[in-house]
Design a protein around this nucleic acid. Structure first.
Length: 370
DNA sequence: GACTCCCGCCATTAA
DNA sequence: TTAATGGCGGGAGTC
């Protein structure tokens, strides 16, 4: 591949292209006042990524209520402050499913689960949810394969059951309906994906990583490791992003490995200076005109948390390794650099610049291949 | 070597 | 028929 060697020095580290970062910038771009709908094409252009990646983001975001499909190519924007309600609905749905799929196995239903159980028929697959993502799977905490049943259904259902959106919903339900502080990757895979060790399992684990990247970029979960096994695990943070109260995320958390290992959704800031400086020259430094005003306290708070969370990580990483920022690193004037002193500044900074999800390597490669 | 996850092919679905 | 959607797994980056 001649093009790859030619472009290799121009391409970004793949960390810079992660779904987590893309999601963060997607939210920066759209979670502001006045946004009512989102076009997939415009999002792809704005973020500088292929359409395909937007589908990934959108599917996950739709599962947590940030947006919903309105028409072809178009989604209506609900915003991150819609997440709590979506989570609540997911939880109810999961609890309802639990009741219908007893016995519950390895995880305990939360106290209110039984009380909340109603006689609603599961056959009502719409269940008040978005039309696409009907939960035909079994209970989340169920250890049996009902959760990932791929039984004798039509092709459409079969396809739907494997969708990223549904996988996301079930992944979230896993946390919402259990008392488990953390769920290991293995457990999640077992519960959600069936047939351990199979090819399908490996494929689905890839999807789990995709989902986890997006969710962690929203601070809904964080990646951690199990104490005993050191195996990768996910911790639910919820909408309020618990660990943000811990400020630096890691030090107070015994579970959290403050390691050189990158974190989901934030690792994209790991940019070597050498690469970065090269990248910066490629970055379009035109500031976005739109003024992002997060006047809604709820969404603003969460966005602040996200930004501060990332800012702190960037600080940590910068301290230890000397790299900051991701591919959206715009060209800064000196005066602008001075102003970047706090998380607030970071937010203002984020709001002032058009996010750059540069994929120059791809663009160049594509061009060369033509 | 295991983990992580980007990338884009291509089947399926929708218009 | 064409465009949109998104499952899927190869394979490369990272640890």
């Amino acid at each position: 591949m001649a093009s790859s060697s030619l472009t290799s020095h121009l391409t970004y580290s793949r960390k810079q292209k992660s779904l987590g970062l893309l999601c963060t910038n997607f939210l920066k771009l759209y979670d502001r006042e006045g946004i009512e709908s989102v076009g997939l094409d415009e999002a792809a252009v704005q973020l500088g990524v292929e359409r395909r990646r937007i589908y990934d983001i959108v599917n996950v975001l739709e599962s947590v209520g940030v947006l919903s499909r309105k028409a072809k190519n178009r989604y209506s924007w609900k915003g991150i402050d819609s997440i709590p309600q979506a989570l609540e609905e997911l939880k109810k749905e999961a609890l309802r499913e639990n009741c219908e799929n007893l016995p519950v196995t390895s995880y305990d239903c939360q106290g209110d689960s039984i009380e909340n159980c109603e006689d609603e028929k599961p056959s009502d697959l719409s269940g008040g949810e978005t039309s696409q993502e009907n939960s035909t799977l079994g209970s989340v905490p169920s250890g049996d394969s009902s959760f990932c049943s791929l039984s004798s259904k039509g092709k459409t259902d079969h396809r739907r059951e494997k969708s990223l959106g549904l996988l996301t919903r079930n992944f979230v339900k896993l946390f919402l309906t259990t008392n488990a502080d953390t769920v290991s990757l293995d457990e999640a895979a077992m519960l959600l994906l069936c047939d351990p060790g199979s090819t399908m399992m490996r494929t689905k684990v890839r999807r789990l990583y995709d989902i986890a990247n997006v969710l962690s970029s929203m601070n809904l979960i964080e990646k951690t490791h199990q104490n005993e096994t050191k195996k990768p695990a996910f911790r639910w943070l919820g909408f309020n992003g618990k660990p943000d109260d811990d400020a630096t995320v890691s030090p107070k958390s015994s579970n959290f490995e403050q390691s050189k290992k990158r974190e989901f959704g934030s690792d994209i800031t790991n940019l070597e200076f050498t690469k970065r400086s090269r990248l910066i020259s490629l970055v379009d430094d035109k500031p976005i005109k739109a003024q992002m005003k997060h006047e809604d306290p709820s969404s603003q708070r969460h966005l602040n948390q996200m930004l501060e969370h990332q800012h702190q990580q960037q600080q940590q990483q910068a301290n230890s390794k000397g790299y900051v920022f991701g591919p959206f690193q715009p060209v800064l004037q000196d005066t602008e650099k001075k102003s970047l002193r706090s998380a607030r500044d970071l937010e203002a900074f984020a709001s002032s610049y058009r996010p750059q999800y540069h994929n120059q390597g791809n663009i160049l490669t594509t061009t060369l291949q033509q």
